[in-house]
């Protein structure tokens, strides 16, 4: 039976990472994710792993680069300004085809912003952020349970495709306490082998890890091969949840904390006889373009709701491609709209 505990989203991700076989964690304090760092400090050494408080987010992500190269499951966590600092390192991880899990418990921005929940890091997470033609697998939990589940999945997908995975959460999810059914512990020794890892060139040719190729055709070919893996991920790994979409007239699209609030909107709307449904992307990359497109064929409007000025909105409009109206409703700076405010907006489109 799964082990049930009352935990915050932050703790759930940390514990799930340890259970998934994460054995190195490198981080730097920043609110609202300090509980992850502190949880790892207390629990990772007991699981036989290494916790290290780095001198900066830049150092932390590069420590992950080293640990990932050694073939060990590795994670770092931070919040928006710290994730910005990690971007060069994330680009190197992507360019060297190294698996790594990065948690962004995002906050209000830009700049120092504030520590309230926000979704202004969607572009950074899904469209690059660092330099070069790369992708991250981006997962967006909306409950503590899902945070735990996706933390485990992030390690598996990242290893399988050798693509870094980022979990995009926010302070509300990170701090909220909920019962979580935890997965069983996995022994790192039972995980699939990594023949490419740097373990010492004993009885084999040396392994080299780099994102560097001076010759343009060589670098082009490396990129082309990596992008073939990205196409595979797009074909196989899109995840989303639908709520009351069968007869919906207005479709809400929202993720993470906003997706959770949107569920309340759907419930209240339905109680009043409003035909409102929800599509909640779970993978932000790969993005659920085709499920949204299918629903766009039969709804009146696809209303994107975000804690930003409209970042995922761009992907929703790409999915809809003019099939119906694509209004947007959002708040910024850490302000979270209430279900009734959103319901009022829904009514304008029925």
């Amino acid at each position: 039976m799964a082990d049930r505990q009352l935990m915050t989203g932050n703790e759930a991700m940390a514990e799930a990472a340890i259970r998934a076989g994460c054995r190195t964690y490198f981080g730097y304090p920043i609110t609202p994710q300090n509980e992850i760092l502190e949880y790892m400090a207390a629990h990772l050494p007991r699981a036989g792993g290494t916790f290290l408080q780095a001198e900066s987010e830049v150092a932390a992500i590069n420590m992950c680069y080293g640990a990932a190269a050694a073939g060990v499951r590795t994670m770092t966590s931070s919040s928006s300004p710290g994730v910005s600092l990690k971007m060069e390192g994330i680009s190197y991880l992507a360019g060297a085809d190294l698996p790594c899990v990065i948690l962004n418990v995002a906050r209000g921005g830009p700049g120092l912003g504030n520590i309230a929940p926000a979704q202004g890091d969607y572009f950074q997470a899904t469209k690059g952020g660092g330099h070069g033609d790369y992708r991250l697998i981006v997962l967006a939990p909306s409950t503590a349970q899902e945070a735990a589940d996706l933390a485990g999945l992030a390690f598996d997908l990242s290893d399988q495709y050798r693509v870094p995975a980022l979990i995009l959460a926010d302070g509300m999810l990170g701090q909220m306490m909920e019962p979580v059914a935890l997965p069983p512990h996995r022994d790192p020794a039972t995980l699939p082998p990594k023949p490419w890892a740097l373990t010492g060139a004993k009885g084999r040719d040396p392994n080299y890890i780099a994102s560097f190729a001076l010759e343009p055709t060589v670098l082009r070919d490396l990129n082309v091969r990596r992008h073939a893996r990205y196409r595979e991920i797009e074909a196989r790994e899109v995840r989303w949840e639908e709520v009351a979409t069968a007869d919906a007239e207005v479709l809400l699209v929202a993720y993470g904390t906003m997706g959770r609030i949107a569920k309340t909107v759907v419930r209240r709307g339905r109680e009043r006889g409003i035909r409102v449904g929800l599509l909640r992307p779970i993978t932000l990359w790969p993005f659920p373009y085709s499920p949204i497109r299918k629903l766009a064929e039969r709804v009146r409007a696809v209303l994107t709701v975000e804690l930003s000025a409209g970042q995922m909105w761009e992907d929703v409009r790409l999915a809809v491609e003019g099939r119906c109206a694509t209004p947007f409703y959002g708040e910024m700076g850490g302000v979270v709209p209430t279900p009734s405010e959103i319901l009022t907006e829904v009514m304008r489109h029925v």
């Binding site: 290494t50 150092a59 932390a60 080293g66 073939g71 590795t74």
Partner: peptide, 13 residues
């Protein structure tokens, strides 16, 4: 960042 990369490698193995 070589010293950080070295730290990650050595701590991992």
């Amino acid at each position: 960042r070589a010293a950080a990369v070295a730290t990650g490698l050595k701590r991992a193995n």
